[in-house]
Amino acid sequence: MTICMILKKIVTSGYILAIVEYLPIPAAQFPSHVEDAKTAVRYLAKQSEELRIDSSNMFVSGDSSGGHTSLLCWATWNSTDLDTDSTEPLPDVKAFLNFYGVTDFTTIADYRSNVPHDSPTSPENLLLGDFLSLNDQEKALRASVRYYLNKETTYAPLLTMHGNKDDVVPFEQGIELQKRCLDLGLDSTFYCIDGAGHGGPAFYHEETVEEVIAFLKKHTDSFSV
């Protein structure tokens, strides 16, 4: 099963997919990508009638850097954090999905990886303005999901899928986040893709796709194809 077949299977299950592009690095830096994603969701909600979108059943998802974007949207959706581009309230989002995204920039370099995450030319440093190689832990923390999680805030359900052979974003990143969510009593589901690396065919397996669709349907109100 290819990525195109996955998208087709999700669409034929009754969902509309909108692929959001955000400003690229190094021209844009944190939190530009999160603000761009929130702006896109606002646009889709506003244009829902024209685009024939059910704005009462919206989801946000991303893989790799998009997973990090989705996670930061999830963690700040019910606050004003990382949302300086607009004072307009964000539309309701039923749930968020994270596929092998970075969860904590303060620990990512601690684990084995084929990517030197704390080097000046790493994607993380280009995104964060060289926070990691300069050892700016405060700024690195502000770009990490756990910085925005607490027991007082309400968060939408979250699904995380991560391969335990990921050699780009260490599998431990997903484990760290899930432990934090469990400690806070959050509605978070963690799905280990056994033997999978950073994306690849294992994520396109029919069983994996069915898990994604089941998660979407579980959190969709009055859903019918």
Rank of each mutant, 00 (worst) to 15 (best):
T84G: 07
P201K: 01
S222R: 11
V93Q: 08
K38S: 00
Q173C: 04
T106K: 11
P89I: 04
L71C: 12
H117G: 00
D83L: 13
A37C: 14
D81E: 14
D136G: 14
S119V: 05
N78Q: 03
D194F: 12
K217R: 12
L71V: 08
Y43T: 05
D167V: 10
V20Y: 00
N78K: 07
S55Q: 14
R180H: 14
M161V: 02
C192I: 14
D194P: 05
D110I: 11
K8D: 08
W74Q: 00
A37T: 01
G163W: 12
S32H: 10
G195Q: 06
L186E: 01
L159G: 00
E172V: 06
P24G: 14
T153V: 03
T153H: 07
A40K: 04
A214Y: 06
N150Y: 01
R146G: 15
E207C: 04
R52H: 12
M161N: 00
S65W: 10
D194Y: 11
T121H: 06
H205G: 07
E50W: 15
T153P: 11
I19Q: 01
D166F: 03
A109Q: 15
L23H: 09
L44D: 01
R146D: 13
T154Y: 05
E172M: 09
H117R: 02
D167E: 13
A95Q: 01
D92M: 12
A75C: 07
Y111G: 03
F190Y: 15
P170G: 10
E211T: 14
D83N: 15
H219A: 02
S224N: 04
I16D: 09
I3T: 04
Q29N: 09
F190C: 15
L186T: 03
A140S: 15
V209F: 13
T80P: 08
I53M: 03
N78W: 02
E211Q: 12
G14C: 01
I213T: 05
T121C: 06
T106S: 11
S222N: 08
E176P: 05
R146S: 14
S144T: 02
